[in-house]
Design a protein around this nucleic acid. Sequence first.
DNA 1: GCCAACGTTGGC
DNA 2: GCCAACGTTGGC
Length: 163
Amino acid sequence: MQYWLMKSEPDEVSIDDLAVAPKQTVPWFGVRNYQARNFMRDTMQIGDLAFFYHSGGAAPGIAGICEVCSEPYPDPTQFAAPQRDFPSAAVNPYFDPKSSPDKPRWWLRDVRFVNKSRYIPLAELRAHPELANMRLLARGNRLSITPVSDAEWAFITQELMGQ
DNA sequence: GCCAACGTTGGC
DNA sequence: GCCAACGTTGGC
């Protein structure tokens, strides 16, 4: 059992989108970083909980909690097959010409909505010494999926979310 | 829109 | 295997 923080551009998939998705579940598509892929493919387990983080925009921050709910499987957006969600490679930013269905590069899991929380901006997270070592806050961090320690999880859920 | 930081690519 | 060039991320 491991805790995580997963970044999403809310214009693409927000916590509210997740809450109204079929079965309140979405595939975590679009990860194109090997370290983040390895976390998702190799380290995550069904039942792991994650903070759902909204990146970009004026005030990025944690918007809620989701749960890992599937085994890893190939991210379909890497193939850009015409019968899938995207009509051509030209309009699919996730297409990877070096990937193929028999040797996929990019893997994902499904995540399920758990709850929406009070919005906790990045600036607020930075202000708490208890979170000083959080991977998200590390200088230069760009990973879209980062581990969260048990202590960090407890502090955020109990002290900041009041859960 | 800027730009710092980082990851990836590809020539050698 | 090195590393310069390039592309991307993401906060501001």
